[in-house]
Computed example of a mutant assay.
Amino acid sequence: MLTRVQERHPLLGASVDRSAPEPLYRRAEGSIGVETIAMGTPWQAVVATEQTRPIAPEPGPLLRAVLIPGDPGSFVVLTFAHQITDGIGGLRVLLELVALLDGDERGTTRGVPRAQEDLLAGLDVQGHTGAAASAVMPVEDERMTAPGALAPFSGLLPHVSALALDRELTTRLVGRCRAEGMSVHAALCAAASRVFHRRGRDFVRILSPVDLRRAAGLSEDVANRFAGARTASEASDADDFWALAQRHHQALGRQRAPHVLQAGSAALAESPPATPEDAEAMMAAVTAADIQITNLGAAEAYGPIHASLKALWGPAQITQLRGEHVLGVVTSGGRLRMTELTHDPVAVLLPEMAAVLARACAAPYQAPNLA
């Protein structure tokens, strides 16, 4: 069934040729590797191990699968090289795989995806520039741009923790965020900020990958279609949860504007890194944060959810930045699930985030005074 999914999405059957002056995608001859391991192995242990196994650019393909047999159900862990897709693309692949296993043949074979930079360059942003001109971007705090430090790849297993909100809390969270006029993602940013502030951090930066399919109307390819947005908070901001969440929401909204995304892509295209060392330095500068939160949202938005799919976790990754916490979030079956990877675990992070969200949703809602 993985071969069937691979046939629909060209990058799932690609390798990267680095012998040319510029790397090129080429067709891989092999099929997607599938490994079966011992029944009952915790999926968290498999995810941790997968982060220590680099995917070679050649001969491809640039993904692999691990099957953990179980009774009554099994786990499947898919690992993708970031050269071929992002979290949303990976979710689409998983949903298509489950559908095929359930006998659902629906699916579209897509052509080779265009480069993200080309798609953004051709984006018509005229309808957004008027509103953008009247919105003054805040002055950049130098603490926001302080670069992170990359740690050499050591092969050490990252710590993996996971927590699922129950259906009741998930429903209350979604409803309250709608009433407050903000995204669930902004509430997650506020909850993480509050936990870190309580642990003694005066200034907290959060990196949020932005899905360009939704933000800029790009095609629904299994490919990289994302940009990064950073928001931050002071310890003094942590007292009023919904006000803090609203600040995150507004800051993300400014950075998600199509003209801003287009300008950022153009700037990178004009001054690309010239060496691997330059690329590493750039990544350390633009991705540095106390925590990265990748929220895929409701899985139902990306394809039918079959009854055989009991739970979704992820996306899960580690990026070798010192002190990083990488949190993946996805909602399916009415439950929001969080998966965190780090080499510097804060044992209370996910439980305290859940507790913060529960208390915030239980607090009385006060409609804004528009008079």
Rank of each mutant, 00 (worst) to 15 (best):
L312N: 02
K310T: 15
T342R: 03
L261H: 03
A307M: 00
I293M: 01
L312S: 10
P273T: 09
N295C: 00
L296T: 04
A307Q: 12
L296K: 04
G297M: 12
E340A: 08
T294Q: 00
E270N: 03
Q262L: 10
A266D: 15
G264H: 09
I293F: 03
R337W: 05
A284S: 15
D278R: 07
H306S: 12
T331Q: 14
H325W: 15
G303D: 02
A257C: 04
G314V: 05
L321G: 04
D278V: 08
I305W: 01
G314D: 06
L321M: 12
I293Q: 01
A274M: 06
T275I: 05
D290K: 01
H325A: 07
V326M: 13
A285P: 00
D290E: 12
E340C: 14
G333F: 06
G297L: 09
Q262P: 07
T294I: 01
I318P: 00
Y302F: 15
L312F: 09
V329P: 06
H343Q: 04
E270Q: 13
V330M: 08
L336M: 15
G314N: 06
T319E: 14
R337H: 07
R335K: 14
A281E: 11
D344F: 00
L268Y: 13
A263M: 12
G334V: 05
Q320V: 00
T342H: 11
A316R: 06
R337S: 15
P304N: 08
R256L: 09
Q317N: 07
A274Q: 14
T342N: 11
E270S: 03
E324W: 02
G264R: 14
S265Q: 07
L321R: 09
L341Y: 02
D278T: 05
D278Q: 07
L312Y: 08
S271K: 08
P273E: 06
I318A: 14
R337K: 04
P258N: 08
T339W: 03
A311D: 13
V286A: 00
W313C: 02
A301L: 12
T319K: 10
G334K: 03
E280F: 01
A299R: 07
A281P: 00
L336F: 05
S271D: 12
S308R: 13
G297N: 10
T294S: 15
H325T: 06
M338L: 15
A288K: 08
A316Y: 07
M338N: 01
M283D: 09
I305S: 04
L321K: 01
T319N: 13
S308P: 00
E300Q: 14
W313I: 00
Q262M: 09
A281K: 13
E280P: 01
L268W: 11
